Amino acid sequence: MEVRTIKVFTTVDNINLHTQVVDMSMTYGQQFGPTYLDGADVTKIKPHNSHEGKTFYVLPNDDTLRVEAFEYYHTTDPSFLGRYMSALNHTKKWKYPQVNGLTSIKWADNNCYLATALLTLQQIELKFNPPALQDAYYRARAGEAANFCALILAYCNKTVGELGDVRETMSYLFQHANLDSCKRVLNVVCKTCGQQQTTLKGVEAVMYMGTLSYEQFKKGVQIPCTCGKQATKYLVQQESPFVMMSAPPAQYELKHGTFTCASEYTGNYQCGHYKHITSKETLYCIDGALLTKSSEYKGPITDVFYKENSYTTTIK
């Protein structure tokens, strides 16, 4: 009895394709271990004539594949690729409408935090270190965002349907971005203890939790000093293409032309909904596939993004 075979390709990165001759009487799992086709788990399936010449994702289970996976995804987590594939199996079914010149995501599976993050990423200057993220990001900007969303979920250790947080998501993504040249110098002034300067680099240099107003941050924000008295913390120097200011959701007025974009969060910790506000020729609110415009805006804002380049204080 002759062994019926077909020729397929296996890959971990969709760049390096490895030619395989597979036995049609055995499952993919018996031949390769966990195997995925377009995100779908085909591990328990036997090869079919229609699979001839198709590319299958496999887990990096030998040295060659491990090197290829690390170079593309910059992670050695053995569960990463499987999590990416199972997320992709959902995100490829989502709709990605162009809204006001940006790629958004039609609401499904509690994905409003991903839509808000995706919209924000198209408006701030950011370059990702893992080629996987950078490639998928370019495709997302062009309207094909399924891979990018699935990668975000995998890097953030999230599953489809789980509630997510924009600030946490951005923080994970910033860790995989090139923020080497970003720098922030802060000064804390206390009447009792004097003053202390701190220099922050990388992710810490672009994120701040405690106030939404970048102007206020430049002037000074009140913080408790270690001595128990009130101290003032203010920005001395900022070198970065953008800054992200966050605070627990509270009524906040966004003035046209003073910011790049913002995240609105309605609801409580267990259950809520994100919308995205962007400042173009007027203010726009993007909620999944829905767009509304207004000249002014007041609502429960939790993150505001500002364009920056270089700032030095005039406070002496």
Rank of each mutant, 00 (worst) to 15 (best):
I315S: 15
R167D: 03
T120A: 15
C261V: 02
E253N: 10
H51L: 06
A154Q: 04
S171C: 15
K255W: 06
N89K: 14
T258Q: 13
P300D: 13
L121V: 14
V58Q: 09
T192N: 13
K191I: 10
C156L: 08
K106Q: 11
L151P: 04
S240D: 01
G164A: 02
L65I: 06
R83P: 04
I315D: 15
P131D: 01
M207V: 08
T313N: 15
I124D: 04
A40S: 13
G29S: 09
P60H: 07
K233P: 00
T282L: 11
P241C: 05
T19R: 11
L114Y: 05
F148V: 04
T199C: 12
H273S: 00
L121E: 03
T10V: 12
D165S: 15
F259L: 01
L102Y: 08
E125G: 11
K183T: 15
P60G: 06
T116E: 05
K54Q: 13
H276M: 08
G299T: 00
T266A: 09
L173K: 02
D38I: 08
K93Y: 11
S25C: 11
Q122N: 04
T116G: 07
Y269W: 15
L37Y: 14
K7Q: 15
E168M: 10
M26N: 12
I286E: 00
P60M: 06
D41V: 09
K298W: 13
F56G: 06
T258L: 07
E125F: 01
W94S: 03
A108R: 07
T258Y: 07
R167S: 04
D41H: 09
T192Q: 12
Q175H: 11
E168R: 12
S213W: 01
T43N: 08
H90I: 12
L163F: 12
Y72E: 07
Y274V: 00
A108E: 07
P78I: 09
L173C: 07
Y234D: 02
R184S: 15
Q195A: 13
N147V: 10
T198K: 14
Y274M: 00
A205T: 03
S181A: 15
P130T: 09
A250G: 13
G101P: 04
G194W: 04
N268L: 14
G82L: 14
V8R: 05
F174M: 07
G53I: 07
Q251V: 11
D23H: 10
K158Y: 01
V67H: 14
L37W: 14
Q197N: 09
T192P: 04
L88I: 04
H18D: 07
L153N: 05
L151V: 05
Q251W: 13
S79R: 13
K255I: 12
F56S: 04
C271V: 07
T27I: 12
E125W: 06
A108C: 12
A40F: 13
Y155P: 00
A150R: 05
Y265H: 00
E2F: 09
A117E: 02
S104P: 03
Y57M: 14
E296N: 12
R139H: 12
Q196V: 10
L114C: 03
C285Y: 04
I152L: 08
S104L: 07
Q270K: 14
V67D: 12
F70G: 11
L121W: 06
T226E: 12
V185T: 09
Y57A: 07
I223K: 02
K127N: 12
W107C: 05
A154E: 04
Y297E: 00
V42S: 08
Q197L: 09
T55A: 12
S310P: 05
Y311F: 10
V160E: 04
Y284A: 12
I105A: 06
T64M: 13
T199D: 05
K218C: 07
T211P: 03
I286A: 03
G267A: 14
L119Q: 03
G228Y: 01
Y57F: 13
K233A: 13
G220F: 02
A250R: 10
Y137Q: 07
E308A: 07
Y234R: 11
P130N: 05
K158I: 06
A177W: 02
E296M: 12
S279I: 01
S279N: 10
V22A: 15
R4C: 13
T103G: 03
I15M: 11
R83M: 08
P78C: 10
